[in-house]
Design a protein around this nucleic acid. Sequence first.
DNA 1: GTCTATATAGAGATAGAC
DNA 2: GTCTATCTCTATATAGAC
Lengths: 208, 208
Amino acid sequence: MKRSPKLTKQKIVEAAVELFDSQGFDGTTVRQIACKAGVNVALIAYYFKNKKGLLEYVMVEYYEALFRKLDGCRHDTEWESLYDLLRHMLESLVRFQSEFYQVTRLIHRELSVESMLGREIMSTYLAKLKHYFAAVIEEGVEEGEFPPLQVEGVVIQLMAITSFPYTYPQIIREVFYLEPLDEQFVEQMVHYTYDFLHHMMTPLNTFR
Amino acid sequence: MKRSPKLTKQKIVEAAVELFDSQGFDGTTVRQIACKAGVNVALIAYYFKNKKGLLEYVMVEYYEALFRKLDGCRHDTEWESLYDLLRHMLESLVRFQSEFYQVTRLIHRELSVESMLGREIMSTYLAKLKHYFAAVIEEGVEEGEFPPLQVEGVVIQLMAITSFPYTYPQIIREVFYLEPLDEQFVEQMVHYTYDFLHHMMTPLNTFR
DNA sequence: GTCTATATAGAGATAGAC
DNA sequence: GTCTATCTCTATATAGAC
């Protein structure tokens, strides 16, 4: 029986994302994926070469879409200050991670194991992501819009805050009894990052 | 050939921690563990029932030690204010995560897959961890030492900031070119959390 | 407490028909 | 583009000797 190739490929990807997300890459078998997608096992090799190729496809697709969205912040929307742009970008990042929460979690998890693929993803996409934010902050500092900041430190903390609820959604659910995918929670998250940013822009009084 | 049982058990644990950390639980085989530990494969079943039992042992040991350390903050050291206590506890948490960085990373990774074990760890140890910090903050708010705070939100962000470098050390290394295990970096991390705390204790001006 | 040997099952990948 | 059948390898776990 012939099927639309586009549909089959997409069904495989969707099944893989769900299973990789919930069980991990190594914890998932190609047979499970094929079964969940309702297609034959051999088709995974046909479309993606092998299981690892499927993972790579998912990761690359995710980051390409993310950067398209972040580029949109810079070019398609109006912003009157770098501070404003930074907020746009952070909100986009949070919302993107929330929208594709399964891929977000599976990528972060696989990034935490030592592997060639992980290293490649980091050296290309994560380095790029860092640069996107660091560049705006540096520009703001140079132009005097922002106070002198330790840019790298700010970016690390922004990454930490924005990613935590989407890499550990079960902690949010089972320890804090909140639903990380609710629009309400997403708005909270966006506010947290705004507040954090605002505090970073406000010089510390002598206290510590 | 007979060996000291204590030594054998410990060798297995150490080998398992290294391998689980670098390759993930599912990505590690009991044979690799036995080989690295220099002991026979069957001894893993003898001491830990099975591979999962070994993981559980590692996780429980880690959290028990962490809470012993945090309890020490409350009782063994002097602190003049809740703010001061909170700082002590946060520094302890950061330093503990840094000291046992391998277990820190492997636990967080395994927490991010859906499993019975993960759920149990969260409902016991992570809930307890949250409570340790939330309790101090709530006390500070009630006694008027702290401004009114959204306690849960603060705790989430503290967890995010303090854990990020130790769950993604390779990001710190390969994207930011910093060494997360250096004392210098640890001190930076401690300062970040202090600053964050300080900012949280400082009411926001109207800006957003 | 430690070992060898093995039972049992399940993995990923592919050849080749349709 | 899809399928069946199978090859090959490797996994965990255990039984039972020492």
